[in-house]
Computed example of a mutant assay.
Amino acid sequence: MADKCDLCLLGLIILSSLLTGTSGDDVFISSGENVRLPCNKALSDCKSKTTWIYYNRFRHSEVKLITGGIKNKDSERHERLSLESDCSLNIKNVTEEDSGLYTCRQYVNYRPQGPDAYASLHVLHVSVSPSSSSSSSSSQTEISPGRSVTLSCQLYSDTGFSCDYWVSSEGYELLWVNQAGVDLKTDSRYQILSSSDPDLCIILTLTTTLLNEDDNRECRCQLTLGNQLLTSVRYTVKYSDPVASPTLIPVRSSNSEKTSSRTTATAPTQVIVIIVEIAVLLLLL
């Protein structure tokens, strides 16, 4: 019942934007990047009159990020937010948790002015399987050749529609490609599985066993709409340095070797001299 209410609420928001002549913007971004969400307002001194609201129906959360131009410090992301002079909202170092619907609303004398502006933020994120690597980051993983690695490309999106409908009807598609832009589905080395999740929308998983020549090789997950590239995430595999085993290296013409050779050569001579001296002494006695 709650899910239906959330869907109805989102539908009313979209319907309201259509009736008032304000269209929502779909913004696609990769995790870790910075994004700017437009407000489309031209009021003077808009900062003190602007409120930004974040809504995500999956997490059932609605938060006022900025009220009257002042950031809400109770928001977990307030340190990454800033308000521009044109009232657009900047988000630094975007994470998958930032996906959702953003509403820009302005007030004059405590009354809303004009229609709201909407922006739907869709975040593309790549993660590596925890069992595949002992050291990883958002764009690079360290692993040894011969092991299997699994990369999951996930599109976090709050569209208000089912993911299957969004993909089949709108034509959005996720692809794993190599450095040359060739679809990795054509390479039998890579196993690629596509699935959907209500909270994520699209998941495209890539699994392969790494070879020696894969060191520093880059692959890319990209989101397309028809022939248009919307956003992409690059991922580089970097092999960790193996522990070097101790090796014996012959020393040639080193000073230490010459010194030890001289010492070894003079030792027998000194012994002979001592023996002769003792023999002479015995004869005299």
Rank of each mutant, 00 (worst) to 15 (best):
A2G: 08
D3A: 11
L9Q: 12
L10E: 14
L12M: 12
T20A: 12
S23C: 04
G24A: 08
D26Q: 11
L43S: 06
L43I: 07
C46S: 03
K47H: 04
S48L: 04
K49I: 03
W52M: 10
K64C: 04
I66W: 01
I66S: 02
G69Y: 02
N72L: 02
L81I: 05
L81H: 08
V94H: 03
T95C: 02
L101M: 09
T103Q: 09
V108G: 06
N109Y: 10
N109R: 10
Q113F: 09
D116Y: 01
S120C: 05
L121W: 06
H122T: 12
S133D: 02
S137G: 06
R147H: 05
S148A: 14
S148F: 05
S148R: 12
T150R: 10
L151C: 06
Y156W: 15
D158M: 14
S162H: 03
Y165L: 10
W166P: 01
G171V: 11
Q179I: 08
A180D: 15
D183E: 12
L184R: 11
L184Y: 00
S195K: 13
L200D: 08
C201W: 00
I202D: 01
I203K: 15
L210P: 06
N216Q: 13
E218G: 00
C219W: 06
R220A: 06
Q222W: 04
Q222L: 14
T236H: 01
K238L: 11
D241Q: 15
P242L: 12
P242R: 12
V243S: 14
V251R: 15
S256C: 10
E257H: 05
K258C: 05
P268D: 08
I272E: 06
E277F: 11
V280E: 12
L282E: 04
